[in-house]
Design a protein around this nucleic acid. Structure first.
Length: 123
DNA sequence: ACAGTGACAACAT
DNA sequence: TATGTTGCCACTG
């Protein structure tokens, strides 16, 4: 629940906070950056856990909407109260999201962090 | 200690 | 392109 030391979730949040406005990346890419190429599902789980975060002022906001799946599609199951919300926020940030919730990664994919920046987060 | 869970991903059909 | 299947993994009761 409320861990202290740096864990996988915290590392995920740290990376997501570095995604610039107007760009997106995938669950798998984040997992790979952190050295866990097969932990894509865990990344999604980490973001899902954000909704359980109380209004803790010491917890910096995480732009979770900038994370989509490897196909450039929004992965939230609930369309009405989830996917559409994510699409709306992304559009407000300048990202073009098609009617069927697809995003062109060739245009909006975030380059990612360099090794030094990743080390800073993982250490 | 261990089985269940889920905002994934790759591959098959 | 659209499903379905299988492998993965961190976190949870």
């Amino acid at each position: 629940m409320n861990d202290q030391g740096p864990n996988f979730y915290d590392q995920v949040y740290a990376v997501v906070r570095r995604i610039p406005r107007g760009k997106v990346t995938s669950y798998g890419r984040i997992a790979s950056m952190l050295g866990h190429p097969n932990a894509a599902r865990a990344v999604g789980y980490a973001l899902n856990a954000l909704k359980d975060k109380p209004d803790d002022p010491t917890f910096a906001p995480v732009p979770w909407q900038r994370v989509v799946n490897s196909q450039g599609r929004i992965s939230i199951v609930n369309r009405e109260h989830g996917a559409n919300v994510q699409a709306k926020i992304l559009r407000s940030e300048g990202v073009v999201v098609s009617e069927d919730l697809r995003i062109d990664l060739k245009v909006y994919l975030w380059e990612g962090l360099n090794l030094a920046e990743i080390e800073e987060i993982v250490k």
